[in-house]
Write a protein that binds this DNA or RNA. Structure first.
Lengths: 323, 323
DNA sequence: ATGAAAGCGCTAACAC
DNA sequence: GTGTTAGCGCTTTCAT
């Protein structure tokens, strides 16, 4: 890799002038031209590493997510990317696999690589953002807002969504409505379950035998559904708290010949294949991409020095009735 | 961010000793302990930026993919990640959106950020890997092998897969078998179409009215399917060359009340929701994760100096008959 | 407008 | 075993 020194030599100018050309500073047209020619001839690309070291900051933002195989998070990532790229930033995707140590390691990387900021959908439990905050590294939480930390957040109203979804099942006349939610240490999971409880309690006393904490993954959803169906008095409907688990749950229902409408099903999150299958399911739509674009905009504001108190933005998630 | 100098001062040693402690070189136990204590007290994290500049290489590998919202590529990414992380490397995911300029920009970033290597599923057309190769940056191509470039590649036998899938439709007795494939400048797309042609030609003269080049995306698949069904003599079966397009195609078939078994459908790629829907479809399974792990292993070998001629590894993709 | 030179934080000779 | 020091390639004062 050629350096500015070699370009400078080839163009008959000083390294400083080369740097100026590549940073849009004032340089006489002739010298600028000479530099550009030399640079092209040598296939020179400025070292981001050196630049970052000198500037103590790079134009890269980290997007930390718990599951890269969940289409919700990849859609969110697209949103982040779109606005980040438009602003000249690159996005590096960090998949924590819902693991705390991995998450912490990535946050460390973000810091020690002088990244411009971090957007994080926190892994379960209370994520440790103290390092970032102590170093004043801009952060915005998305989808999940880390417990008791004062950072910008972009979320949806999980409880209201859970309530609305469950309410729909109630109105369809189901009597024993179960809930399959995510890990008990993930905020979005407990909130959605709270929403379920809200709606169910209104009808009859809540029965926690019908509540299952799973893992937000396909197999977890399947296992939970199997357990529920094996109950002495199995549920006649289920609210599933995310997209992936609902695939597992539906698979089990299918295997046992109990697909909707035999069983009532409401899901928090989008199911892209739903139009294909003639199954009546209530869906709470997640504005995944919008969460991403909003978070990215917030982060960019912080990066450019915005210093107002932390904001929390709640995006609407729309209920699509049985269809 | 504290530096080794501050840690050194706090521990009463030289910066070099601090560096040695963090790099496992020989240091007396007492000093090592003092350094560790000081480092912890200051919450010191070594600057990767500085380290990378000094070493002219970082433990980061770039994974360049054309569509982050395609589960095939995210599964592949998981495979890459698993292997890379186990070897102490971080993976940064770069989404090109099937765009050449974006791709080139990311390759530039990889180079100028001193990344250890690149795994690339090339965007359509002939990707320009010359920069990487000139700089001897380790590269391995995955899923798609860039045209006329001598690099390691991990792929599947697209033509054989397309042939087998189509053959299955032939054997089911379909007469007019259409093909919806990807962009004509993407190798995997044309190869899968070639496989289709192989199988169809054996039965009757190929009819290119039944061949559609789409975009490997849901809406492209839907549009192509609509066009095909609007033909004077519409096909009675279709081979769809990737997972996403098949979702679109199936949606259109569903809308027109022509879902399988009324229409024969064979798909190249996995459809996670298939167990849910009682639709008989022939599927050519893609070993997505395996492609990723294999590519990562190859790349790691190259990074550690392996210098043998470029290899191409062809992974088997299994045909799952109608179910 | 341009060049000289210092320094971002780290590692690796090289001395001792 | 440990300290001193010279860079890695860039940006940016400070002179001129």
């Amino acid at each position: 890799m050629p350096t500015i020194y070699e370009v400078a030599a080839a163009a008959g100018v000083s390294p400083a002038t080369v740097s100026r050309v590549f940073n849009g500073a004032n340089v006489s047209p002739e010298k600028a031209e000479a530099v550009r020619k030399a640079a092209k001839a040598l296939a020179f690309t400025p070292s981001r590493t050196a630049r970052t070291l000198r500037l103590q900051s790079s134009e890269v933002i980290a997007l930390v997510i718990p599951d890269i195989e969940n289409p919700f998070f990849t859609a969110l990532a697209r949103g982040v990317e779109d606005v980040a790229r438009a602003a000249g930033y690159s996005v590096v995707l960090c998949n924590t696999d819902e693991d705390h140590d991995t998450e912490l390691r990535y946050l460390d990387v973000a810091l020690s690589a002088n990244m411009a900021g971090v957007i994080i959908a926190a892994a379960g439990g209370n994520s440790d953002l103290s390092g970032l905050i102590a170093r004043k590294c801009p952060v915005v939480a998305v989808d999940r807002s880390p417990h008791g930390v004062d950072v910008d957040a972009v979320i949806v109203d999980n409880r209201a969504g859970g309530r609305a979804a469950t309410q729909a099942l109630v109105e369809q006349g189901f009597q024993r409505i179960a809930c399959i939610t995510g890990p008990s240490d993930v905020e979005t999971a407990t909130q959605r379950a709270d929403g379920w409880r809200d709606a169910v309690t209104a009808a009859r006393p809540t029965d926690d035998r019908y509540l299952r904490y799973a893992d937000f993954r396909v197999e977890g959803g399947a296992a939970a559904m199997s357990e529920l169906l094996a109950l002495p008095e199995p549920p006649d409907a289920v609210f599933v708290a995310n997209n992936l688990m609902s695939v597992g749950a539906l698979r089990v229902l299918s295997e046992q010949g109990k697909l909707p409408p035999a069983t009532g099903v409401a899901v928090f999150g989008d199911l892209p294949f739903l139009p294909l299958v003639p199954i009546p399911i209530t869906v709470v739509h997640m504005p995944a991409r919008h969460l991403g674009t909003t978070a990215a905009k917030l982060l960019l504001e912080r990066i450019t020095g915005d210093d107002q108190p932390a904001r929390t933005i709640v995006l609407r998630n729309q209920l699509t009735p049985v269809g």
